[in-house]
Deep mutational scan, measured.
Amino acid sequence: VTTYKLVINGKTLKGETTTKAVDAETAEKAFKQYANDNGVDGVWTYDDATKTFTVTEMV
């Protein structure tokens, strides 16, 4: 189990959260659900070296 981080660069919501998951795919599903629940829709990137997902909403 690995800890993954999500950085949110939203128009109205900004911040970070973490989740523990067995792999990046599982973490991504959890983060996308979290973003969807919070009304964040944007471009996703993932950095495997730092285990960090970033979602950026276009203005």
Score class of each variant (00 low, 15 high):
Asn36Cys: 08
Lys32His: 10
Asp23Cys: 04
Phe31Met: 03
Val7Ala: 05
Lys14Gly: 14
Asp41Gly: 09
Phe53Asn: 00
Tyr46Asn: 01
Thr18Ala: 08
Ala30Val: 10
Thr18Arg: 06
Tyr46Leu: 02
Gly39Leu: 13
Asp37Lys: 06
Val59Ser: 12
Val7Pro: 00
Met58Lys: 10
Lys51Met: 08
Trp44Arg: 00
Asn38Gly: 06
Thr3Phe: 07
Asp41Gln: 06
Ala24Pro: 08
Phe31Lys: 00
Glu16Cys: 04
Phe53Ala: 01
Thr52Asp: 01
Asn36Gln: 11
Thr18Leu: 14
Val43His: 09
Thr54Asp: 03
Thr19Gly: 04
Val55Ala: 03
Lys32Glu: 05
Asn9Ala: 12
Asn38Lys: 15
Gln33Leu: 12
Phe31Pro: 00
Lys32Pro: 00
Tyr46Glu: 00
Ala35Gly: 04
Thr45Tyr: 07
Ala35Trp: 03
Thr19Val: 12
Asp37Val: 12
Thr3Asp: 12
Thr3Gly: 04
Lys32Val: 14
Tyr4Gln: 00
Glu16His: 04
Thr12Met: 09
Gly42Glu: 01
Lys20Asp: 14
Val43Glu: 13
Val22Thr: 07
Glu28Ser: 14
Ile8Gly: 02
Lys5Ser: 05
Tyr46Cys: 01
Gly42Gln: 02
Val7Leu: 07
Lys32Phe: 08
Thr45His: 08
Glu25Ile: 12
Lys29Trp: 08
Val43Tyr: 07
Ile8Trp: 15
Val43Gln: 08
Thr18Glu: 14
Thr45Val: 07
Asp48Ile: 15
Val55Leu: 08
Tyr46His: 02
Gly10Val: 15
Phe53Ser: 00
Glu16Phe: 05
Lys5Tyr: 06
Thr18Gly: 04
Val43Arg: 10
Lys11Glu: 15
Phe53Tyr: 06
Ala49Met: 11
Thr12Asp: 14
Lys29Asn: 11
Ala35Thr: 07
Lys20Ile: 13
Thr45Leu: 09
Val22Lys: 14
Lys20Leu: 10
Val59Cys: 05
Asn38Leu: 10
Thr26Ile: 06
Glu25His: 14
Trp44Leu: 03
Thr54Ala: 05
Ala35Arg: 01
Thr50Leu: 12
Thr56Val: 15
Val40Tyr: 05
Glu28Ile: 09
Thr54Val: 13
Val43Leu: 11
Gly10Asp: 04
Glu28Phe: 12
Thr56Gly: 03
Asn38Val: 12
Tyr46Gln: 01
Lys32Tyr: 10
Thr12Arg: 02
Thr2Arg: 13
Thr2Asn: 07
Ala27Ile: 01
Lys14Tyr: 07
Thr2Met: 14
Glu25Trp: 08
Asn9Asp: 15
Thr3Ser: 07
Glu57Lys: 02
Leu13Phe: 15
Val40Gly: 02
Tyr34Arg: 02
Thr45Gln: 12
Gly10Leu: 15
Thr19Phe: 08
Lys20Ser: 10
Asp23Ala: 05
Gly10His: 12
Gly39Glu: 12
Val1Pro: 06
Thr3Arg: 05
Lys32Cys: 04
Asp48Pro: 10
Ala24Phe: 11
Val55Arg: 00
Glu16Gln: 04
Thr19Tyr: 14
Thr45Asp: 11
Ala24Cys: 04
Lys20Asn: 13
Val40Gln: 03
Val55Tyr: 02
Gly10Asn: 10
Lys20Thr: 12
Val59Asp: 12
Ala30Pro: 02
Leu13Val: 14
Val40His: 05
Ala30Tyr: 10
Gly15Pro: 15
Met58Cys: 03
Lys51Asp: 03
Lys32Thr: 06
Tyr34Ser: 02
Val59Gln: 13
Lys5Ala: 04
Ala24Val: 13
Tyr4His: 02
Gly42Trp: 04
Asp41Cys: 05
Ala24Ser: 07
Lys20Phe: 11
Ala21Met: 04
Val7Gln: 06
Lys29Tyr: 13
Lys51Ala: 07
Asp41Thr: 11
Asp23His: 04
Glu57Ser: 03
Ala24Tyr: 10
Asp48Phe: 09
Thr2Ser: 10
Thr50Trp: 05
Trp44Phe: 05
Lys51Glu: 06
Thr17Pro: 03
Tyr34Lys: 03
Asn36Phe: 07
Leu13Thr: 04
Ala30Met: 15
Trp44Gly: 00
Gly10Tyr: 15
Ala35Val: 06
Lys5Phe: 05
Phe53Thr: 01
Tyr46Lys: 01
Gln33Glu: 10
Lys11Phe: 15
Tyr34Met: 06
Lys29Glu: 11
Thr18His: 08
Ala49Lys: 09
Thr17Trp: 15
Gln33Arg: 09
Tyr4Cys: 01
Trp44Ala: 01
Val43Cys: 05
Glu16Asn: 03
Lys20Gly: 07
Thr45Trp: 09
Val22Asp: 15
Tyr46Pro: 00
Asp37Met: 08
Ile8Asp: 01
Val1Ala: 12
Thr17Leu: 14
Asp23Glu: 05
Tyr46Trp: 04
Gln33Phe: 07
Gly39Lys: 12
Thr19Leu: 07
Tyr4Ala: 00
Ile8Leu: 10
Asp23Thr: 08
Thr26Leu: 07
Ala30Gly: 11
Ala24Thr: 11
Ala27Leu: 01
Tyr34Gln: 03
Tyr34Asn: 02
Lys14Ala: 11
Phe53Cys: 01
Tyr4Ser: 00
Thr56Asn: 13
Gly39Asn: 15
Gln33Ser: 13
Asp47Phe: 04
Gly39Ile: 04
Asp47Tyr: 05
Val43Ile: 09
Asp48Trp: 07
Thr18Lys: 11
Thr50Gln: 14
Ala21Ser: 09
Glu57Phe: 04
Lys20Trp: 15
Asn36Pro: 02
Tyr34Asp: 02
Val40Lys: 02
Gly10Phe: 15
Val43Ser: 08
Asn36Lys: 14
Thr17Phe: 14
Ala21Arg: 03
Thr3Ala: 11
Ile8Arg: 01
Asn9Phe: 11
Leu13Arg: 02
Val55His: 01
Ala27Trp: 01
Asp23Phe: 04
Ala49Glu: 09
Val59Thr: 09
Asp47Leu: 05
Ala30Leu: 07
Lys20Met: 14
Asp37Glu: 14
Ala49Gln: 11
Glu16Trp: 06
Thr50Lys: 13
Lys29Gly: 07
Lys14Trp: 12
Thr19Asn: 05
Lys29Met: 13
Glu16Arg: 03
Lys5Val: 08
Lys5Arg: 07
Lys11Thr: 14
Leu13Ile: 15
Lys14Pro: 14
Lys14Val: 09
Thr56Asp: 08
Lys5Trp: 06
Lys51Tyr: 12
Thr54Tyr: 05
Thr18Trp: 14
Thr12Lys: 03
Val59His: 08
Val59Trp: 09
